[in-house]
Computed example of a mutant assay.
Amino acid sequence: MVVSKNQKIDFVVSWVNGQDSKWLEKYNKYSQQDTLDEKDARFRDYYIFKYWFRAVEKFAPWVNHIYLVTDNQIPEWLETNNPKLTVVDHKDIIPEEYLPVFNSSAIELNLANIDGLSEQFVYFNDDMFINKPVTKRDFFSKNGLPKDTAGLNAIQPHYDFDHIHVNNIRIINERYNARKVLKKQFFKFINPVNRELNIYTILLFFWPRFTRFFDLHYPYSLRKSEMQRVLQENKSAYLGTMENRFRSKEDITVWLVRYYSLVEGKFSVRSPRVGKIYDVKKSFKEAINDIDKSQHKLIVINDDPAIDKKRFGEISEKLKETFENKYPQKSSFEKED
C-alpha cells in the first residue's frame, strides 16, 4: 500500500478532567474498585489541553480529522462545530455493559470502533504534544507502514502496571518464535537509526524468548485494520480487559497492536529521538526548556503521583504560561470570546 500525498491520516486524542465534579461523582461511585497504583496522576488535568490543539494546527495542518475521546466531558473552550473535529463519547465506541469505564487500557482498545476513522491514524494521550513542525512521514512511511522504533528491553518489576507488560509479551511469545523473528527482522531491530536502543537489543538478542520491547511513550502510529485483526485474534484477552472498570494487573493494552507490527516487520524504522518524555517532578525545568526551544518534534509531559496539590498548581501555572508564550494565538478549535 502506497500513501499518496492526499492520504488521510487522522489524529485521535483521549482526555479526562479528573477535577470535574460530575466526573468525580461518577468515579467515586466505583472508586473502591480502583486498586492499581498511581491513581492521582492518571486523572489530573493541568489545564493545558487547548495548547495541544494550537500545536496541531500550527505544526500539523495536514491532519485530516481529529477525534477527541471523552467520558461525557467537553472542555468549555472547545469549538465543537469545527468541521475537522468530532467529539467521541465512550458510549459511541464501547458496549454499554462495560460503562462507565475508567480503565485507559480498555478505552484505547476500542479506538478502531470510531465511526469514520481513517485506516491510518495517530493516537495521542492528552499529555503528548507536537512540539515543532511534523509531516506525514514522521508517522507513516511512503508505503503506509507505521513509523516506530524496535528495541528489546527487560521487565523490571516495581509498579503494579508492570504486570501489563508481562500480559502483552506473553501473547507475543505464544504466537511468535523470538529467534526466527529477530533473524528475519534483524535490520529493523539492529539499525543505526535506533541509536542507543541497539545496546539493549544486542544484550538481549540471544535470549530464547522476548523479555519485553521498548515502549516509547510517544504518539502511536496505528492502522485500523491491524488493530481489529490483533484484537480479534486475542478476543478473550480483549474481553478480559473490558471486564475491568479500572486498570488491572490482568489487562492487555494498545501496545500489543504495536508488538504485532514489530515482530511481523510491518513498520518503518524511526529514531527514538523523535521525542522526549519528561517527568514533571524530576525534569520540569528541562520540559519547559524543550517547549521554549522546540528541541524535539514530540514531547510528553508526564504527571507524577508524588507531586502534592500545591506543587501541582505551581506546575500547572508555569506550563500554561510557557505554552501561552509559544502559542499566543487561538486555534480554530477554540470558541471566540
Rank of each mutant, 00 (worst) to 15 (best):
R229V: 06
F312I: 10
L298E: 10
Y278K: 00
D290Q: 04
I315L: 07
Y278E: 07
N244F: 04
D290M: 04
V263E: 12
K310V: 13
D279Y: 00
L262V: 06
K276Y: 12
D251E: 09
Y259F: 15
V274I: 15
G265V: 09
V230S: 06
S236V: 15
I288K: 07
G313Q: 14
H296F: 14
T241P: 10
W255A: 09
G265N: 08
K309A: 14
S261E: 13
L231P: 09
D304N: 14
V230N: 05
G265E: 08
L298A: 07
L256H: 11
D292P: 00
V269N: 08
N302C: 00
V230T: 09
S248K: 01
N244I: 08
T241V: 04
L298D: 07
E286L: 05
K249F: 11
D290P: 04
A287L: 15
K276I: 11
G275I: 09
K266A: 12
K297G: 06
Y259K: 09
I277D: 06
T253G: 07
V300C: 13
V300W: 01
S261M: 11
Y238V: 12
A237M: 12
F284T: 02
Y259D: 12
S268P: 09
D303T: 00
A287K: 04
I291S: 06
G240H: 09
D251K: 03
G240Y: 07
E233P: 03
D279Q: 05
D308K: 07
F284V: 00
K281M: 05
S271W: 10
R245C: 08
I291D: 06
I277Q: 08
R229N: 15
E233K: 14
T241M: 08
K249A: 12
